[in-house]
Design a protein around this nucleic acid. Structure first.
Lengths: 331, 331
DNA sequence: CTGAAAGCGCTTACAG
DNA sequence: CTGAAAGCGCTTACAG
């Protein structure tokens, strides 16, 4: 039924080991033999059995992608598909496969990652999130398995790619200040997420440099990163407070905020937010600048870093790679 | 280094084959033995090698996801992550793994799918798109490999899940007509995509039933499914034509359209569109009804259908499954 | 209910 | 430059 390396060998008049070497394009096989064997492979429509290959070679040529616990916010945010696009793109250049983690509970997620890792299904992992005290990440660190985290985890000792969240938020805040804003608020979200904290720090720094006061009560952090949160927050706030500028850590929240500003005719309020990709140039809207975080590039770089780590590992070297991806101010 | 079935067997005082049977929870092993072997597995932190398992059992327990040629529209549309969410959810209930197709050119994409299929990496495929004359899909049909398509391909002979695009568009058009619209346009997109055609048919049918005339020039089809397309189209059209209702096949295009309607103060124009999930109840906006297509459910059902197909196949039965997922009108 | 043995389809020292 | 042979870590008839 299935054609194997043995069938090819027979037809080509060589040993199975030779066919195997042709398959991996070994330099120790003559061009002549390679050509002949390859022709036979074509003829017989041979495709190698990857399971056998992986078992024998102990190499999976596959990257495991670790998704966070499922939430509306994660799956509705363009970050995820955009990063994934960069990942598939980069993985395919080296002919690496991609495997998704699954599991609906923390336990099942961990179990599945263990099965991927210890079960020799993947050569390395990319985490599509960065929470502190994540049991899965802790486990991976403890066994020192090749992994790259998207984001900046609190304690180092691992490889990561991220934007410079501090600088990006600071710069954006400066834009609003230059635009005339004097009473600014920071609309965050889950303060356990590192990027929320970092962007807040950038926000503060900009205020300070501009000699504007910072009040903790102007930080709003109990949001689930969905548009409705931004909308509701504005509903509650707009009359009570008279902010003239808002730095919004999450793009979906910003969507809700802007909707509310429209509905309540607060056209003078400026906003600044962060997006995964450059939205099409809408009618010039100088009151709503944002940073394009270039999440696709983030995905590409994560893969590249993983490749580098894998190579380092093969060479016995151990170091941690941490890379910053440039963001672009759009105003 | 790695602990294998043999190590477990030794420590538990049984044969490797017994350990293997415990692993698959075979009924022919006594509870007593199972308990003992399992304890040893725990103790030794045993995780099976999936490559060996798949090679020996000829079962991959993995689903391959076939993505379309990369495009902004695909990766920016919430359809993709939403469907994926449903897929991961359903796959995890049966402990199936998920593998993503990659490749930047049509040739490389096809090669990779071949490697997944013939290389025994996946038990079945889910296509996250439905184009006619897709070489990959043709290939899969030709070898009769288990697969489910999301969408309704022109020629049958395969398994599929889809919304009822005709009815959904018809009903939505009726809503606009009841809302007072008399001069309607259909904003489509790539007319090679089946759902664009189907929704157009529904649009037409509603006009006809309401005794409203249909003019082919009121159909706009040269769009790439991005917000900017919708925006530009409106820019070009709004003055020339005086539509009072728009049925928009794609949600992102609709976003651009609505933006334009706002900017140009055309608040009287109604729109109707289709979304992958229920957006949060914004301020009641009766002029912009939409259908929630429930794409997450689409993903879940695709997986279930694939499981059914796999089972049918094991039983020697051959039939094609085609399922419609309910959509919900939001107005 | 359990074990011994063959086999899944490759890769890779080792020998020549 | 090529081949024979052992081995990767499982599963699964077959026999008892």
């Amino acid at each position: 039924m299935t054609v194997t390396i043995k069938d090819v060998a027979e037809r080509a008049g060589v040993a199975p080991s030779t066919v195997s070497r042709v398959l991996s394009d070994s330099t120790s096989i003559s061009q002549k033999t390679k050509k002949r064997v390859r022709r036979v492979m074509e003829e017989m429509n041979y495709v190698p059995n990857y399971n056998a290959r992986r078992l024998a070679s102990r190499q999976s040529q596959t990257i495991g992608l670790v998704l966070p616990q499922a939430s509306d916010a994660f799956y509705q945010n363009p970050f995820f598909p955009t990063v994934l696009r960069g990942i598939t793109e980069a993985a395919s250049t080296k002919e690496y496969g991609l495997m998704l983690s699954t599991g609906d509970t923390p336990e099942r997620r961990k179990k599945h990652v263990e099965a991927m890792v210890q079960g020799k299904q993947v050569a390395g992992l990319i985490f599509l999130y960065a929470n502190d005290n994540d049991p899965i990440l802790e486990f991976i660190k403890s066994i020192n398995f090749p992994a790259v985290v998207m984001g900046t985890p609190e304690n180092g000792q691992l490889n990561a790619v991220d934007n410079d969240n501090f600088s990006v938020a600071k710069e954006l805040t400066e834009v609003l200040i230059q635009g005339g804003c004097r009473k600014l608020a920071y609309v965050g979200g889950d303060s356990h997420q590192y990027f929320v904290q970092k962007r807040l720090a950038g926000f503060k720094a900009a205020l300070q440099e501009a000699d504007l006061p910072f009040y903790p009560e102007d930080v709003y952090n109990d949001l689930t990163f969905l548009p409705r949160d931004g909308y509701q927050l504005m509903e509650d706030l707009l009359e009570a407070k008279d902010y003239d500028g808002l730095i919004i850590a999450d793009h979906l929240v910003a969507r809700g905020v802007k909707k509310a500003l429209e509905v309540f005719h607060k056209h003078q309020v400026m906003t600044g937010t962060f997006k995964s990709f450059a939205a099409e140039p809408n009618p010039q809207d100088h009151r709503h600048p944002y940073f394009n975080l270039n999440s696709q590039q983030l995905g590409r770089r994560a893969v590249q870093i993983l490749f580098d780590v894998l190579e380092d590992q093969a060479n016995g070297s151990t170091r941690y790679l941490y890379e910053i991806v440039e963001a672009e101010l759009m105003k």
